[in-house]
Design a protein around this nucleic acid. Structure first.
Length: 475
DNA sequence: TTTTGAGTTGTTCGA
DNA sequence: GTCGAACAACTCAAA
């Protein structure tokens, strides 16, 4: 029986897995391989939270394979020589994988494909994580899109629920191909010590089963009313699928099809969620065509923008939820404890850092990269550039979030603040949104909470507006 | 080629 | 309390 290496990367599932499917369809014995090679990811090697998740996702994938009579071969080192050596050991004639779109990884993979083919192997990649490949959506002139709405109009009109593929109950054993044993998962991704990730797993279950459960929960409950509920910080009104999608534990085609076919859902709710998947598509489209955006502003005017000096004390207070602005601190602490932050709150904390503190968005992007379990180069970059106003399809410069009004609107009971900044839970509601306006209550109930925000809200807003307006005139 | 319509997520001010 | 206007042009995408 001919053998194919199925190289798993950010597609840690068996269901609707195009590389595995191709191997089986063509009668190849699949040898599942995972290679730990963080130094091949350029400046964006996975962060700590991401690795904590990946460890569990790989363990889950490994268990799924073993349940079916196969197993995951885990390797550590350089991808190309390891693939070549493993192909030689197993007599594999093919190497199959699902694509990734990070610029450094795209380049690496192109080289690997070239070299494998030069060595006489069949090397082939597939779309395993997007509704559309970045190059499958184009303007009528054949150009890439820079604005979300026309991008999504075009893509949405093209989308048809595809036939998804179920993983078989049994898989052939790699032992039959003489597969080697590789290294232990613990050797490449040891458990965090101390267990700072404990809070992550109260909210999330990495792996294919956890991903399916999250989708079922969302489609069965939160999807109804999603368009409104998605903005309320304390509720589980969003899908919380982002880490599962990042690691490819569930097929995005299956997610889209499930939501598209859900019964009794208003069109507004359904389309709103599909548009969120659309933002993920758009982010990958932009990163593919403008690979510099992870480092540099897409809008070139911002190359010269005078960001504030990154004062370490200010930055540290932002990171650790000690800004003195309750909704910002709640968000940053949710991130620290759970590895995740509600989307609405992400915008608020990002606006605080880039507008009120006027710090370069890359400081925020880097912190998110290290602390988010859903850290994804395309989405993270897109989110930060959008909020900072440096992307092409960006927030207008005058859109500066007021963290007090945002808290009132999207956390009207103050429950989100109380949950993540418990020292403020004893404050009555109006004071909980803006404690500096009630110094006596603050002193009595929360003596350790900052007396005042890092910067005055009105002054910060004015300074940001002035700085961003100056850029306009400078052009 | 030129024209036209439109653009995720907001805030503030004054009537 | 509610509502509309102002905030700023500019670029994108399609007709």
């Amino acid at each position: 029986m001919a053998v194919a290496l199925v190289w798993f990367r950010d597609d840690l599932r068996l269901d609707d897995q195009p590389a595995l499917r191709a191997a089986l369809d063509r009668g190849w014995l699949p040898v599942p391989v995972y290679i730990h090679a963080p130094d091949e990811e350029g400046a964006w090697a996975p962060g700590a939270a991401s690795n904590a998740w990946r460890r569990r996702a790989l363990a889950a994938l490994s268990a799924e394979l073993e349940r079916r009579g196969s197993r995951l071969l885990v390797l550590h080192g350089h991808s190309l020589p390891l693939l070549q050596a493993t192909a030689a050991l197993t007599g594999a004639e093919a190497v199959l994988w699902a694509r990734r779109y990070e610029p450094a990884v795209e380049q690496r993979d192109a080289r690997i494909k070239r070299e494998l083919r030069r060595a006489g192997l069949h090397a082939e990649s597939f779309n395993g994580s997007l509704l559309f490949e970045p190059w499958e959506v184009a303007t009528k002139q054949g150009d890439p899109y820079r604005v979300f709405t026309p991008f999504w109009r075009t893509a949405r009109a093209q989308w048809r629920a595809p036939a998804t593929w179920d993983a078989p109950a049994r898989l052939p054993s790699p032992e039959d191909a003489g597969a080697p044993h590789g290294v232990a998962l613990d050797d490449i991704l040891p458990a965090p010590r101390p267990a700072w990730d404990a809070g992550f797993w109260q909210r999330f279950t990495p792996g294919e089963t956890g991903a399916r459960q999250a989708l079922a929960r969302f489609a069965g409950r939160a999807l109804d009313g999603y368009a409104d509920a998605r903005d309320r910080a304390v509720e589980a009104g969003t899908s919380r699928l982002s880490p599962h999608l990042h690691f490819g534990e569930i097929s995005v085609q299956r997610v889209a099809a499930t939501v598209n076919d859900a019964d009794g859902i208003a069109d507004g709710d359904r389309e709103r969620f599909l548009a969120e998947l659309g933002w993920r598509e758009f982010a990958h489209h932009v990163l593919h065509y403008f690979p510099q955006v992870a480092e540099r502003p897409l809008d070139p005017r911002f190359e010269d923008f005078r960001w504030a000096r990154p004062l370490q004390a200010r930055l540290a207070a932002w990171r650790h939820g000690r800004t003195g602005v309750p909704i910002v601190d709640a968000g940053m602490r949710e991130l620290w404890h759970t590895g995740w932050m509600h989307n609405r709150v992400r915008m608020v904390v990002a606006s605080w850092l880039t507008k009120h503190l006027r710090m370069h968005w890359r400081h925020g992007a880097r912190w998110f990269w290290d602390t988010l379990v859903d850290a994804d180069l395309a989405n993270n970059t897109q989110g930060w550039q959008w909020t900072a106003g440096t992307g092409a399809d960006a927030a207008p410069y005058f859109r500066v979030f007021n963290p007090v009004s945002q808290a009132r609107r999207f956390d009207p009971e103050g429950a989100y603040i109380a949950r993540w900044v418990p020292e403020l839970a004893a404050l009555p509601l109006p004071a909980r949104f803006a404690p500096w306006e009630h110094p006596e209550l603050l002193r009595r109930h929360a003596p350790d909470y900052p007396r005042t925000p890092q910067v005055d809200l009105a002054e910060g807003r004015q300074a940001a507006l002035a700085a961003f307006a100056a850029l306009r005139h400078a052009r």
